[in-house]
Every structure is written in C-alpha cells, then in structure tokens.
Design a protein around this nucleic acid. Sequence first.
DNA 1: TCAAAAATTAAACAGTTGTTTAATTTAAAC
DNA 2: GTTTAAATTAAACAACTGTTTAATTTTTGA
Lengths: 208, 208
Amino acid sequence: MKNNFNDKQIQILEVAECLFAEKGFDGTSIRNIAKMAKINIAMVSYYFGSKERLLESLIIYRTSDLKNQLDNLLQEDLEPIEKINKLIELYINRINSNRGIYRILHFEFTSKKREQSLQDFSELKKGNLKSLETIIEDGQRKGIFRKDIIIPLITPTILGTFFHFHMNKTFFENLLNLKTEELYNNYIKTNLTKHIQQTIKALLIYES
Amino acid sequence: MKNNFNDKQIQILEVAECLFAEKGFDGTSIRNIAKMAKINIAMVSYYFGSKERLLESLIIYRTSDLKNQLDNLLQEDLEPIEKINKLIELYINRINSNRGIYRILHFEFTSKKREQSLQDFSELKKGNLKSLETIIEDGQRKGIFRKDIIIPLITPTILGTFFHFHMNKTFFENLLNLKTEELYNNYIKTNLTKHIQQTIKALLIYES
DNA sequence: TCAAAAATTAAACAGTTGTTTAATTTAAAC
DNA sequence: GTTTAAATTAAACAACTGTTTAATTTTTGA
C-alpha cells in the first residue's frame, strides 16, 4: 500500500477519478480515460496493470493521509463537543472537496468483490471509528454525553446525511434555490454542516 | 406514468431489479437479464423498447404506491413525535424490504441524464417532503418542536443514515457480529431504526 | 556517443455490448 | 377452421470492451 506515483500516473489517476465519479466504474472505458488524459490506451495497463488495479491505486492515492488529520485533531486541547464539531467539519470539508473519490468508494465498494481494496478501505474505516470512540468515551467519562448511544451508528448519520444530500444534488439545488456551484458549496459549508453538528450534539446531550 | 404491466413484464422487471441492485445498471447486460429470466434477449426491447426504458419502468413499478402509505399515516390521530417515529419506521421498513430498487435509485440517478425517470423521482421526493413538513409544522405550532430546524435536511439524515449503514453492510456485519442475514435485518429493524428515531427526536426537541 | 531502459504508439485480439431483423410459433378473434 | 395479431426465436449488426503485442520513439546513465 505505497502511494509514490509519478507525474504521468497522477495525471491518469485524476482523469480516472473525474470519470469514475461522473459515470461510474463500469460506465467508464479505458478509451474514455485515455482520450481525456491524452494518452495511448495501452498506458493504463502499462502503468497500473489493469483497469481494476487502476481503481485500487486511485483509492490509495486519495485516502492515505486522512488518518493523520484525524490523529492531529485528537491531540488538540478542546472540549469533547468541540472536538466532535471539528471532526464533523473535517469530514464534510474533506469529503466535499474530494467528492469524486468518495462517491466512487460508496458506489463501487458495496457488494462487489474487489477484495484487496476493500480490505484497505475497511482498515481506514476502523481507524476513523476508533478516533470517534475516543472522543465520545472521553465526553461520557466527563458526564457531558449520555451513555445509551450506539457509537458505530454515529458515522452513518454524519456521512449518510452528507451523502444523501449530495447524491440528490439537483433535487436540493432546485428546492433550496442554489443556482450556482458556489452557492451549493456554501450551503454545504454552512447550513448542512451546522445541521449535522446540531443533530449530533442533540443526540449526544439530550436527555429524554 | 402508468404501471399496468403484464405477467411477463413483471417477471423481467423483477429479474432486472435483482441484477441492477447487485451489479449496477452498466454492470448488467441484457443477456444477463434474459438468461436469468429464461427469455430471449429480444424480449426486453420488445416489451420495454430499450434497456434505458426498462429501468424507467422498474422505477415506476416499485415506487407508485409509497405516496398512499404516507397519506394514510398523515391522517392517523397521533402526537407529532409519534407520527415522526412511525414515518421513520415506515421509511426504513419499506426501503429495507425493497433494497434493490432504492439502491438502484441512488446509484443511477445522481449525475446522469435519464431525464424522464428523474422527473418522476423528483416528484415523489417532493411529495414525501411535503408530508414531513406537515407533521413537523404541526408539532411546532403545538410548541413541542423547536423552530430553528431546516426541515428539508431531515430526510437526508433519516435516509442517509440507513443508506450509509447498508452500503457498508459487510463492514458493519463484521463490526457488530451480525453473522446471518436474519441478525442483520433484525439489527436494522430494532437498533438502527431506534437510533434514527432517537436522533431525530433529540434534534426536534433538544434546546441548546 | 552509444547502449540499455523506459515510454509511447498503432494495430490486433477475442469478447461483449444493445438493438434490429426476418422468420417462426403461439394465441385470439370471428 | 381460417385469418389476424401477439409472442418468441435465432441470427446478424456494428460498435465498444479490456488487454496484449511488437515495433518505434524517447530518455537515461556511463
């Protein structure tokens, strides 16, 4: 799982990311990629071995530094609820500016084989969950967070809310009058992020 | 947007649903469908016109009665929070027992063309949102629900949480030790549904 | 400068794709 | 029973699929 790609490989990876995100893995042909990246179709096999391995490389290329960012956050000196808010902001920001790859991850890694990449991806998710657990258990010890919470289900709420919003992009663009890409992005950065923070905070603190 | 399909068409639709859900629209060939449905490959074009129109027919076939169920719920005599809980249960139950089509909807209707079906789907979502608004505004008038809530973002939280959980099925099966399909379904019906209800309730009621 | 390695190319490979055709079988109508 | 319509079939269509090959160009290292 190394990620030292050369310039040419990176050029191909970024074109592939764009196309996979837009048309899906099966919906994108090597000829599509080659044309857009202005390379010969044989270069994909030459550099990555196969279309499947190209996808694996793309996952590695895009996800290999998320863990570090989370670790840094964990060590900041903040109240638990502030850490949660920052974690949500980090997630949304990061995913929103890497929409392509995260859409691909969720589209291509559900019921398919893709053994190796799936393994890597699973490790990444486990690490993320561990970070979240650390923060929440700290808040529970301090008596701030309630204790009848299923922690592994928090991530689905955070990420799921974002993804569902984003996967229905055109629907919400119409509904909320987000006419430009900038307005849409701004809505995510402010309103949507705030909604998720508000939701998770209420869930963690509210006593029924 | 009629949905009177004959037996043969329904047979094809259900096979297509199964395969589309499993391998995606682009990942499924008409020959796959024909083989599994034990029909000649020309029959798809004969009955539906094209592969694209087959997908449209499938959407119509599977979504045309959701609206009725929601309308019935709206007219029940229940407290707002109870209605929300029932709405969540209805959503999760329905989607969970029609996983195929909903997975397809979310996989195939994001950035692609598919003009007509997208229009139909958009109308369905608008109707659903209207129902949710009715319930929440009622709760707000009665002073039970807080008023600084962005209602259109509630659906992403409800459905997104479910989808994110389900799209990471194998990950959560391992993490939560859900070894059989029955255990997995049971977890959704009880714990996941409760988590979503708890989350939305906290969001609607918690005063910061 | 020149040989070895790396990069790039066009062409071909064998399969698969969605769709159409024209012929044949089955069912319905009278 | 005969005619008309509907259903089903195998075959062919041209276009596209991922991958490999062998030849050629470019870059590298001494």
